[in-house]
Amino acid sequence: MEQWGFYFDQSRCLGCKACMLACKNWNELRRGDKDTNRLNIENYTVAEGANENAAAYIDPATGTNNYAEFRKFYMKENWRRVSTHDRGGVVLGTGNTFKTTFDRRYLSVSCNHCSEPACRDACPVGAIFKEETIGAVIVNSSMCISCGKCREACPWNAPQYYDDNFARYNPDDPARPRMTKCTLCFDRVREGRKPTCVAACWNRALDAGPLEELKTKYSGIAGGWQNPDEIEEFANSAVPELGIPSTGPNIIFTRKGRWIRR
């Protein structure tokens, strides 16, 4: 096996979320509720009354756009997540002027396809495994019992459900959310393509490939890349509430730090 991983350049990330959208777009047919919430658009039939029903547009209780209805038809799971991390502030100083120490950083993370995945070890039914060719961590959703233990175990929030109330569903309910997660775009990678988030990254902050290859590729940039071991501290500083077990995340990254000419 040649272990693959991600590279993330925080000094380039604009927080635009194109990676998230590209992921949802490519994996639309892999979302957990695709069978329960599907538009009947195969032949574009125009059902009588479809356009006269005000509730199709507007939530009658609040008057807002009926987003609850609209969002049934896209992937809710965030296989890739972009978070915002602020430090410092801007205050009114002397002379009616602004004084600022504000700094913002973004963090784009999907699944780090760990060498020792905590999710795998936590799963009571053995639905999660490491795939053999590129080391992607894959879930067999059909086995999932929606217990949420994988989600609790993962420091990165990689295991996803389309509904956060997944535990409340009846086990026999066909709509019961089962865990889904990033596959490292296994289908695409096998075809010689980049994961869709990497292909989409608007500001070229993401990469993926064999981890050793990535380390070589990014060894020359100013500041260099950080070891996977350091991502615990990296993430800790960005997301303080996360506890970090030693899972061997397969990611290297460049921090946003002092501005350095490359």
Partner: peptide
């Protein structure tokens, strides 16, 4: 089948 399935962009090229 007369239906859009995915949308990718200019970066979606062969990795190599």
């Amino acid at each position: 089948n007369n239906r859009l399935v995915h949308l990718t962009s200019a970066g979606d090229i062969e990795r190599d």
